[in-house]
């Protein structure tokens, strides 16, 4: 079920994604962390409190926790982190088969004496590696910058928050794996991935605007895991984390089963 050659080859082919995504995401998180001290000052927070509640909720801003490093990262940095990591994860997942078919490498690769399931899982293993490395680097960049220029009271909560976002991103990858066998163009796979993550994000943002449409958020993977809970130190949203992981695994194994039985487009 695991083939080292396929894994390494896929990793080699993902090297640019790994490099660019890790650097961009880590830098972005460092910038957020670096700005946190300016934002968390008293006057800014009291200014925020004068904004209409619905607007604040739409942008996932909670003035009460905004005053802390953890709150700021959970409110603002987190969204960017999941958006970017989620899009990358969905793109890698959805291109697993689609890209090979699109580039006509499918004939050579899928006729190798490696089972289709092993090909699928080995490729997914390398995607997991890329996503994990990006997530770890982003967490590290946030904490290091935070310690250097801001006041980090609870580094554990920050790490947990990033771990939560990592699981949500994996859920996006899972959706990609479930879809990839039905796609025969890498371009389509990419646009669908971006579209899906953005729509997911938008649904979640809209639902914050009014109590009456809060149910809309249920259709969003962003809604799976409420990281402001972590920032407040109340608890870890274990159910959300579990559901995210399950969506990932279901997508992965479901996609693998579909792939092992489906015709490969010429």
């Amino acid at each position: 079920m695991f083939h080292k050659g396929i894994f390494l080859n896929e990793l080699y082919r993902s090297r640019k994604t790994l490099l660019v995504n890790s650097i961009v995401l880590a830098l972005l998180m460092a910038v957020f962390a670096g700005f946190s001290d300016m934002v968390t000052r008293e006057d800014f927070v009291s200014l925020l409190k004068t904004y209409p509640q619905s607007l604040l909720e739409a942008f996932n801003i909670d003035p009460d926790i905004m005053g802390t490093f953890e709150g700021w990262m959970a409110g603002e940095a987190y969204v960017m982190y999941v958006l970017i990591l989620g899009i990358v994860a969905a793109m890698m997942g959805s291109s697993t088969v689609a890209k090979e078919v699109d580039q006509h490498t499918s004939e050579a690769v899928f006729t190798l004496p490696v089972s289709r399931k092993a090909v699928f899982l080995s490729k997914a293993a390398s995607h997991l590696m890329v996503i994990t490395v990006s997530a770890l680097l982003s967490t590290a960049a946030s904490l290091i910058t935070g310690f250097a220029v801001a006041h980090v009271a609870y580094p554990g909560r920050v790490a947990l928050m990033f771990a939560g976002g990592y699981l949500v991103s994996l859920a996006f990858a899972g959706v990609g794996y479930a879809a990839t066998s039905f796609l025969d163009s890498d371009r389509t796979a990419m646009s669908l991935s971006i579209g899906f993550v953005l729509i997911s994000f938008t649904l979640n943002a809209f639902s914050g605007m009014s109590e009456s449409i809060r149910w809309v958020a249920n259709g969003s993977l962003f809604h799976l895991l409420d990281v402001t809970v972590i920032a407040r130190g109340d608890s870890f949203p274990a159910v959300g984390a579990l559901v995210s992981a399950l969506i990932y695994l279901a997508g992965l194994f479901g996609g693998m089963l579909v792939f092992s039985k489906r015709d490969i487009a010429a």
Partner: peptide, 23 residues
């Protein structure tokens, strides 16, 4: 009957339209 990699091991295949990882 479905996916049989062990059998493929004994076959050499040349596709009609073939591309390989180009980099």
């Amino acid at each position: 009957r479905g996916d049989n990699p062990r059998l493929r091991r004994r076959i050499g295949y040349l596709p009609g339209e073939v591309s390989y990882y180009s980099d």
